[in-house]
Amino acid sequence: VYQAEFLLVCLGTFLIGGYQASAMYYRYTALEAVRDDQKGRAAALVVGGGVLAALIAPEIASYTRNMVAIPFAGSYLALAGLATIAALIMLMLRDGGVPAKTRTGGAVMLELLRRPRLRGAIAISAAGHGIMILVMTATPLAMKFCGFDVDTAANIIRWHIIGMFLPAFVAGPMIDRFGARLMAVVGALALVFSVVFAVSGISFSAFLISSFLLGIGWNLMLLAGTTLLGEGHDASERGHAQSLMELGNSITGTVASLVAGALIAGAGWNIINFGVLPVLLVAIFLMWAGGRKPVTQGV
């Protein structure tokens, strides 16, 4: 930005994307640092940190935007500073160790996907993530078509973000107490009620409540899927399993963001929301089908 070189800005943004992708692994790092009965709370606290980010990030961006002579160059410097702080914190964490790998490559990935437990965990996480991205991206467009201004849509998205991260502080203990599968169902029900409110009308309150519930559903399904993932693999397969879950989240999120605009223009707001329901049913079925299997090595 300081050099006014567009290609360098694109390259820098590409690297920021890699940084953000690696940040999704922070919750796995937390799982390696605690006992089995604390895993839900550990993952939840990491995700819950998004509340702090939602509160301070706009202020940091506003304060640093004109910190140097070139507008927004200071914001990128602030981002570099925050990433440095994150790296220092990572160095202070207990090392979970690198497990001995007996096998590597795509064959391991295919074998993992054949396991019902792991497949169900990935389905729950990917479904919740894809649905959230799809509806969240479509919401401001739908509000514009309904006559709301940009500031009103921004306020709705703000409450959606609060719904995404604030429940993590209670979702973690609930997962540890009642089990990840039950909490995944609760998350799916939150998304069902989000659909109910979304199609109930075009009022401000309908958009607000549906967006807030959308965030809650995403939170519960992501945390439940992350916790369930550990049941479907051993330590030597940990990296492959985590990569599969993140790949599933990335694919569904990317597809959802790409099709949201076309769907809202071609099919409409109600069709988008009703389309959420069969995806939820398939994800819940895969999760419960895998959960009925006895817990044995490689299942």
Rank of each mutant, 00 (worst) to 15 (best):
W288M: 14
I216P: 00
D36E: 13
F274L: 15
F148P: 01
S203F: 10
G232F: 05
L110T: 12
A138M: 13
G163S: 13
S257E: 12
A142P: 07
F274N: 05
I251S: 06
I124H: 07
L52D: 06
V185Q: 11
F148C: 03
L113P: 08
P58Q: 10
I56R: 01
L55V: 15
P140V: 07
V135C: 08
I89K: 01
M24E: 06
A30W: 00
A43N: 06
V299W: 09
A123Y: 05
M183N: 05
A206R: 09
Y2H: 15
T13S: 03
G253T: 04
I284M: 15
G187H: 00
G239I: 03
Q20D: 09
L93M: 14
A33D: 09
S75D: 01
T254I: 07
G48S: 01
A138F: 15
C146V: 04
G187Q: 01
Y25W: 04
P71V: 00
T84P: 00
V150F: 03
L118F: 04
S210R: 10
A168W: 01
S205D: 07
F204N: 02
N249I: 13
S210W: 12
I85L: 15
V259A: 10
A107M: 14
R41A: 12
R27M: 07
L280D: 11
S75P: 03
A127E: 09
I251A: 11
F207A: 02
I175H: 01
L222W: 00
R238Y: 02
A262G: 10
V170E: 01
L214S: 12
F212S: 02
L286D: 11
F285E: 06
G248M: 04
Y28D: 07
V276A: 08
G50K: 02
C10P: 00
G130E: 11
V295Y: 09
G230H: 13
A283K: 03
R181N: 15
N66K: 05
K101R: 12
L263T: 05
M245R: 07
A69P: 04
L110A: 10
F14P: 03
Q242D: 08
G163D: 11
F169G: 03
Y19L: 07
F165K: 05
R181H: 14
P140A: 13
H129K: 05
I271D: 06
M67D: 03
G147V: 10
R103P: 12
S210N: 10
Q38H: 02
A30T: 00
G97F: 02
G172P: 06
T254M: 13
V276K: 01
S194E: 09
G248P: 07
D151Q: 14
G12K: 00
R117M: 13
I60P: 02
N270Q: 13
C146P: 00
H240S: 14
V255I: 15
F204D: 00
G291L: 08
K101E: 14
K39T: 15
R117N: 10
T84V: 15
A180W: 14
A53R: 00
V259P: 04
P99L: 08
L8T: 08
A224H: 10
I133D: 00
Q20S: 11
